[in-house]
Amino acid sequence: MAPSPAPAPRGFSRRALLAATGGLALLATGCTGGSPGDAAVSTEEADQLAGQVAVQEAVVAAYAAAAAADAELGATVADLARQAGEQLDRLRAAAPAVGSSSAPASSPAAAAPAGGDVRGWLRGQVAAAAGAHADACVDQSGPRAALLGSLAAGLRGHEAALA
């Protein structure tokens, strides 16, 4: 079908999409300036964001544990594990209390069930983290809410891919 001569809507147009998301560009570097809801981060918000770092560390650990328990599964979900690590890096950068940390993931995940349903176990771990991020997102504001909501959605996507 040939493109319509009608003006591109906001849902399609790259320019419009960039405009719609332009205010979030600072998230890429973990900076939290520029949004109407971006007043100084309260202690409560900072603590909660730090808590979500631990949640994401557990996801990274869960992917590692699953790969250790089932090498074939580990190869299958390598992209997902890499994305979980990228999420952790950005979350650490955005969390005031742990933003400078470069330590590897340290939160232990529950051990993957050896010989059991490792994929199902991993999916459960991911789903729990997605729910935690989504809950935390509601209590945050501005770029922090956007980041946590995006992480939650990303992990819901992982959950779907693991189904």
Partner: peptide, 21 residues
């Protein structure tokens, strides 16, 4: 995501997070 960035009400963030996922 833009809604999450701009929202002031938690109920709106809840809606946005759900639809984003």
């Amino acid at each position: 995501v833009r809604v999450l960035d701009q929202a002031g009400q938690s109920v709106v963030r809840e809606l946005a997070a759900g639809e984003l996922a």
